[in-house]
Amino acid sequence: MFGQKFGYVDTQYILNKMPEYKKAQQEIQKVALAWQDEIKEKQKEIEALYSALRTEEVLLTEAMKQERLAAIRQREQELKDQQTKIFGYEGLYFLKEKELMQTVQEKVFEAVEKVSVKQKIQVMFDKSGQLVMIYTNPVHDYTDYVLEELGLGDKDDTIK
Rank of each mutant, 00 (worst) to 15 (best):
G3Q: 11
K5V: 04
G7F: 05
K17T: 06
E20W: 08
I28D: 03
L33E: 15
L33C: 07
I39T: 08
E41L: 10
K42P: 04
K42F: 02
Q43D: 08
E45Q: 14
S51K: 08
R54N: 03
E56D: 13
E56Q: 14
L60F: 10
L60N: 05
T61C: 02
E62R: 04
E67V: 15
L69T: 10
L69Y: 14
L69K: 14
R73I: 11
L79A: 00
L79R: 04
L79Y: 05
K85W: 08
K85V: 10
G88C: 05
Y89K: 14
E90R: 12
Y93H: 14
L95F: 03
L95S: 04
K98F: 02
L100G: 06
M101E: 02
T103N: 08
V104K: 01
V104E: 06
Q105H: 11
E106F: 14
K107W: 09
V108R: 03
E113D: 07
V117Y: 15
I121V: 02
Q122L: 15
M124Q: 00
D126Q: 00
D126N: 01
S128D: 03
M133Y: 15
I134Y: 11
Y135A: 12
T136W: 15
N137M: 07
H140S: 10
T143C: 00
D144L: 00
Y145I: 01
L147V: 05
L152C: 07
K155P: 09
D156K: 12
D157I: 12
K160P: 15
